[in-house]
Amino acid sequence: MRTDEVQGFVDRHVGERGGLISILEDMQARYGYLPADVLRAVAERTGQSLTDVYGVATFYKSFSLKPRGKHLCSVCVGTACHVRRAPMVAREVERRLGIRPGDTTADREFTLETVNCLGACALGPIVVVDGHYFSAVTTGKVKDILEQTRAGLDRVDVKTDRRIFPVTVSCSRCNHSLMDAAHPIDGSPSIRVTVSFKRHHGWLRLSSLYGSYTLECEYEIPMDAVVDFFCPHCHADLKSAAGCPECGAPMVAMIVRAGGIVQVCSRRGCKGHMLDLNGSGF
């Protein structure tokens, strides 16, 4: 039940100054918004009045009492962007999505908000979708941006994106290569490991392109499930001591041939990863 979960969040910040904000932040990260029953539960568990909790939740713009869409689209209407016709861009986005700023589309895909300056005025008008910045946006570009978002902004174009490069990795215990040239993913050899979760035990192939999240697996792994990774050769558990910077689940470490280690999150769907080319974090 949600209210039980709330207790955990509350305990984490009990006695902290400004603890209420941290609690609400955690809740917002967990549910995407602050549902009424959660606010009530927070008030009850922290011993503060619902009025105060509600006051804080409505005061800060980063909290939302309404469910948010999958994608958050923020249009900057700050001064610099304003003079470069940001209001027209904002209106175009409104028209295309059929919602007003602060609202969410009926299909829960988009939440639209306007912000006042993102600190990148020289590149204005700025539109930010899910953390991706689009600069010098014109009304004509709005359609593309929204379509791109629908298709998935994280589906990177491996050929043209220079942030992406292949890594060659091996097991951190037996140093056996984990590369599987026979089954390329994204056009380069894949990384093959054994995974197990619940009763299932099978292979998993990851794209070796750093920054690509494409994978194939023998079994359908449910989203958010944390799975165990093993070396297919020595069967060593690849789990490392580190926790995922995004979700806290254990990380899986592999040695990069060129030196250093790469770690990926063991939670399905989590994009947490780190690359440490000096290997000092090992």
């Binding site: 009045s49 009025t51 409505t58």
Partner: peptide, 19 residues
């Protein structure tokens, strides 16, 4: 009682009960 309080901020600030 603490039944009413401030809600929102700036232009949208108002006094009332939660929800």
């Amino acid at each position: 009682a603490g039944a009413i309080g401030f809600r929102g901020r700036g232009e949208n600030r108002s006094i009332g009960t939660p929800f």
